[in-house]
Protein backbone atom coordinates (compact mmCIF):
# COMPACT_ATOMS: atom_id res chain seq x y z
CA UNK A 1 0.00 0.00 0.00
CA UNK A 2 1.15 3.51 -0.65
CA UNK A 3 2.14 5.61 2.32
CA UNK A 4 -0.82 7.29 4.00
CA UNK A 5 -1.28 10.98 3.36
CA UNK A 6 0.66 12.90 5.99
CA UNK A 7 -1.71 15.76 6.48
CA UNK A 8 -5.31 15.61 7.60
CA UNK A 9 -7.87 15.47 4.80
CA UNK A 10 -9.42 18.92 4.70
CA UNK A 11 -12.58 18.08 2.79
CA UNK A 12 -13.96 15.32 4.97
CA UNK A 13 -17.73 15.86 5.35
CA UNK A 14 -17.62 13.91 8.61
CA UNK A 15 -14.80 15.90 10.21
CA UNK A 16 -16.99 18.01 12.47
CA UNK A 17 -19.08 15.09 13.65
CA UNK A 18 -15.96 13.02 14.30
CA UNK A 19 -14.57 15.86 16.43
CA UNK A 20 -17.85 16.03 18.33
CA UNK A 21 -17.85 12.24 18.85
CA UNK A 22 -14.31 12.39 20.20
CA UNK A 23 -15.36 15.04 22.69
CA UNK A 24 -18.58 13.31 23.73
CA UNK A 25 -19.13 9.87 22.23
CA UNK A 26 -22.49 9.33 23.92
CA UNK A 27 -23.90 12.47 22.32
CA UNK A 28 -22.44 12.34 18.80
CA UNK A 29 -21.67 8.71 18.06
CA UNK A 30 -25.30 7.74 17.34
CA UNK A 31 -25.30 10.28 14.51
CA UNK A 32 -22.17 8.70 13.02
CA UNK A 33 -23.92 5.32 13.20
CA UNK A 34 -27.01 6.69 11.54
CA UNK A 35 -24.86 8.12 8.76
CA UNK A 36 -23.25 4.82 7.85
CA UNK A 37 -25.42 1.97 9.13
CA UNK A 38 -27.34 1.47 5.90
CA UNK A 39 -24.31 1.72 3.64
CA UNK A 40 -22.38 -0.74 5.79
CA UNK A 41 -25.33 -3.12 5.94
CA UNK A 42 -25.50 -3.16 2.14
CA UNK A 43 -21.73 -3.60 1.93
CA UNK A 44 -22.15 -6.59 4.25
CA UNK A 45 -24.98 -8.04 2.17
CA UNK A 46 -22.90 -7.82 -0.98
CA UNK A 47 -19.88 -9.33 0.74
CA UNK A 48 -21.57 -12.05 2.82
CA UNK A 49 -24.88 -12.66 1.06
CA UNK A 50 -26.63 -13.45 4.35
CA UNK A 51 -28.53 -10.80 6.29
CA UNK A 52 -27.45 -12.07 9.73
CA UNK A 53 -23.76 -11.98 8.70
CA UNK A 54 -24.23 -8.48 7.29
CA UNK A 55 -25.79 -7.39 10.60
CA UNK A 56 -22.86 -8.84 12.55
CA UNK A 57 -20.46 -7.04 10.25
CA UNK A 58 -22.18 -3.70 10.90
CA UNK A 59 -22.14 -4.24 14.65
CA UNK A 60 -18.48 -5.34 14.73
CA UNK A 61 -17.47 -2.42 12.55
CA UNK A 62 -19.12 0.17 14.80
CA UNK A 63 -17.69 -1.51 17.88
CA UNK A 64 -14.22 -1.05 16.42
CA UNK A 65 -14.93 2.49 15.29
CA UNK A 66 -16.09 3.31 18.82
CA UNK A 67 -13.02 1.75 20.41
CA UNK A 68 -10.44 3.23 18.07
CA UNK A 69 -11.96 6.61 17.23
CA UNK A 70 -9.34 8.39 19.34
CA UNK A 71 -6.66 6.76 17.22
CA UNK A 72 -8.16 8.03 13.96
CA UNK A 73 -5.74 10.70 12.78
CA UNK A 74 -7.67 12.14 9.82
CA UNK A 75 -5.04 10.73 7.46
CA UNK A 76 -7.89 9.61 5.27
CA UNK A 77 -11.60 10.42 5.11
CA UNK A 78 -13.53 9.03 8.05
CA UNK A 79 -15.74 7.07 5.63
CA UNK A 80 -12.69 5.38 4.09
CA UNK A 81 -11.39 4.51 7.55
CA UNK A 82 -14.76 2.95 8.46
CA UNK A 83 -14.74 0.85 5.30
CA UNK A 84 -11.17 -0.16 5.98
CA UNK A 85 -12.32 -1.57 9.30
CA UNK A 86 -15.33 -3.28 7.70
CA UNK A 87 -13.27 -4.80 4.88
CA UNK A 88 -10.69 -6.02 7.33
CA UNK A 89 -13.41 -7.71 9.43
CA UNK A 90 -14.78 -9.37 6.27
CA UNK A 91 -11.38 -10.69 5.35
CA UNK A 92 -10.67 -11.96 8.87
CA UNK A 93 -14.02 -13.71 8.99
CA UNK A 94 -13.46 -15.28 5.63
CA UNK A 95 -15.02 -18.65 5.49
CA UNK A 96 -14.74 -21.23 2.80
CA UNK A 97 -17.81 -20.68 0.73
CA UNK A 98 -19.31 -23.22 -1.60
CA UNK A 99 -20.36 -20.30 -3.79
CA UNK A 100 -17.02 -18.61 -3.99
CA UNK A 101 -13.96 -20.81 -3.70
CA UNK A 102 -10.78 -18.77 -3.49
CA UNK A 103 -9.08 -18.78 -6.87
CA UNK A 104 -7.29 -16.51 -9.27
CA UNK A 105 -9.20 -15.15 -12.24
CA UNK A 106 -7.09 -14.86 -15.36
CA UNK A 107 -7.79 -12.52 -18.24
CA UNK A 108 -7.56 -15.35 -20.74
CA UNK A 109 -10.56 -17.17 -19.32
CA UNK A 110 -12.76 -14.25 -20.38
CA UNK A 111 -11.50 -13.94 -23.94
CA UNK A 112 -13.96 -15.32 -26.47
CA UNK A 113 -12.54 -18.67 -27.55
CA UNK A 114 -14.00 -18.89 -31.01
CA UNK A 115 -15.86 -16.79 -33.49
CA UNK A 116 -19.25 -18.16 -32.48
CA UNK A 117 -18.69 -16.74 -29.00
CA UNK A 118 -18.36 -13.25 -30.41
CA UNK A 119 -21.58 -11.30 -30.80
CA UNK A 120 -22.09 -9.26 -33.94
CA UNK A 121 -24.46 -6.70 -32.45
CA UNK A 122 -24.77 -5.04 -29.09
CA UNK A 123 -27.29 -7.27 -27.25
CA UNK A 124 -30.59 -5.81 -26.08
CA UNK A 125 -29.59 -5.98 -22.39
CA UNK A 126 -26.73 -3.60 -23.10
CA UNK A 127 -28.56 -1.44 -25.64
CA UNK A 128 -31.98 -0.80 -24.06
CA UNK A 129 -32.43 2.00 -21.50
CA UNK A 130 -31.25 0.83 -18.09
CA UNK A 131 -34.69 1.10 -16.45
CA UNK A 132 -36.15 -1.29 -19.04
CA UNK A 133 -33.53 -3.90 -18.21
CA UNK A 134 -33.13 -3.64 -14.44
CA UNK A 135 -35.80 -5.59 -12.56
CA UNK A 136 -35.93 -7.63 -9.36
CA UNK A 137 -34.93 -10.87 -11.05
CA UNK A 138 -31.89 -9.23 -12.60
CA UNK A 139 -30.99 -7.72 -9.22
CA UNK A 140 -31.05 -11.24 -7.77
CA UNK A 141 -28.91 -12.60 -10.61
CA UNK A 142 -26.46 -9.77 -10.16
CA UNK A 143 -26.22 -10.43 -6.43
CA UNK A 144 -25.65 -14.16 -7.12
CA UNK A 145 -22.89 -13.32 -9.57
CA UNK A 146 -21.23 -10.94 -7.11
CA UNK A 147 -21.32 -13.63 -4.42
CA UNK A 148 -19.83 -16.15 -6.85
CA UNK A 149 -16.75 -13.94 -7.25
CA UNK A 150 -13.70 -15.02 -5.26
CA UNK A 151 -13.54 -12.72 -2.25
CA UNK A 152 -10.47 -10.71 -3.20
CA UNK A 153 -12.14 -9.71 -6.47
CA UNK A 154 -15.56 -9.26 -4.87
CA UNK A 155 -14.38 -6.74 -2.31
CA UNK A 156 -12.73 -4.60 -5.01
CA UNK A 157 -15.81 -4.69 -7.23
CA UNK A 158 -18.13 -3.80 -4.35
CA UNK A 159 -15.98 -0.88 -3.23
CA UNK A 160 -15.49 0.50 -6.74
CA UNK A 161 -18.73 -0.24 -8.59
CA UNK A 162 -21.31 -0.49 -5.81
CA UNK A 163 -20.01 1.87 -3.13
CA UNK A 164 -18.43 4.28 -5.59
CA UNK A 165 -14.93 4.61 -4.10
CA UNK A 166 -12.16 5.72 -6.46
CA UNK A 167 -9.27 3.46 -7.42
CA UNK A 168 -6.97 5.29 -4.99
CA UNK A 169 -9.47 5.14 -2.14
CA UNK A 170 -10.11 1.44 -2.71
CA UNK A 171 -6.36 0.81 -2.74
CA UNK A 172 -6.01 2.63 0.55
CA UNK A 173 -8.95 0.79 2.14
CA UNK A 174 -7.63 -2.61 1.07
CA UNK A 175 -3.92 -1.93 1.51
CA UNK A 176 -3.27 -2.67 -2.18
CA UNK A 177 -1.55 -0.75 -4.93
CA UNK A 178 -3.84 1.14 -7.35
CA UNK A 179 -2.51 -1.08 -10.15
CA UNK A 180 -3.59 -4.16 -8.25
CA UNK A 181 -7.05 -2.69 -7.69
CA UNK A 182 -7.38 -2.03 -11.42
CA UNK A 183 -6.39 -5.58 -12.36
CA UNK A 184 -8.78 -7.17 -9.86
CA UNK A 185 -11.62 -4.81 -10.79
CA UNK A 186 -11.33 -5.55 -14.49
CA UNK A 187 -11.37 -9.32 -13.96
CA UNK A 188 -14.29 -9.05 -11.57
CA UNK A 189 -16.26 -7.00 -14.10
CA UNK A 190 -15.51 -9.50 -16.88
CA UNK A 191 -16.65 -12.31 -14.58
CA UNK A 192 -19.95 -10.52 -13.91
CA UNK A 193 -20.38 -9.68 -17.56
CA UNK A 194 -20.05 -13.35 -18.49
CA UNK A 195 -22.65 -14.28 -15.85
CA UNK A 196 -25.07 -11.65 -17.10
CA UNK A 197 -24.49 -12.70 -20.71
CA UNK A 198 -25.27 -16.32 -19.83
CA UNK A 199 -28.39 -15.22 -17.97
CA UNK A 200 -29.69 -13.14 -20.89
CA UNK A 201 -28.78 -15.83 -23.43
CA UNK A 202 -31.13 -18.16 -21.56
CA UNK A 203 -33.99 -15.79 -20.78
Amino acid sequence: MSEPTRYPIKSDPDAELVRAARADQAAAFPELVKRYERALYNFGLKMCGVASDAEDLVQDTFLNVYRYLDGFRNETKFKNWVYRIAASICIKKRRKSKFAPDRELSLDEFLPTDETAVEGDVPAWAALPLDRVLNDELRRKLQEAILALPEKYRVVLVLRDVEGFSTEESAQILNLTPANVKVRLHRARLFLRDHLKSYFDNV
Binding site: L157, G164, L192, L196, K197
Partner: peptide, 15 residues
Protein backbone atom coordinates in the same frame (compact mmCIF):
# COMPACT_ATOMS: atom_id res chain seq x y z
CA UNK B 1 -20.87 -2.04 -24.45
CA UNK B 2 -21.66 -5.13 -22.39
CA UNK B 3 -18.90 -4.35 -19.90
CA UNK B 4 -20.14 -0.77 -19.58
CA UNK B 5 -23.69 -2.02 -18.96
CA UNK B 6 -22.41 -4.47 -16.35
CA UNK B 7 -20.83 -1.59 -14.43
CA UNK B 8 -23.99 0.52 -14.77
CA UNK B 9 -26.13 -2.32 -13.42
CA UNK B 10 -23.88 -2.65 -10.37
CA UNK B 11 -24.13 1.09 -9.73
CA UNK B 12 -27.88 1.27 -10.22
CA UNK B 13 -29.01 -1.96 -8.55
CA UNK B 14 -30.02 -0.02 -5.44
CA UNK B 15 -29.59 -0.54 -1.73
Amino acid sequence: STLKRTVALCREAGA
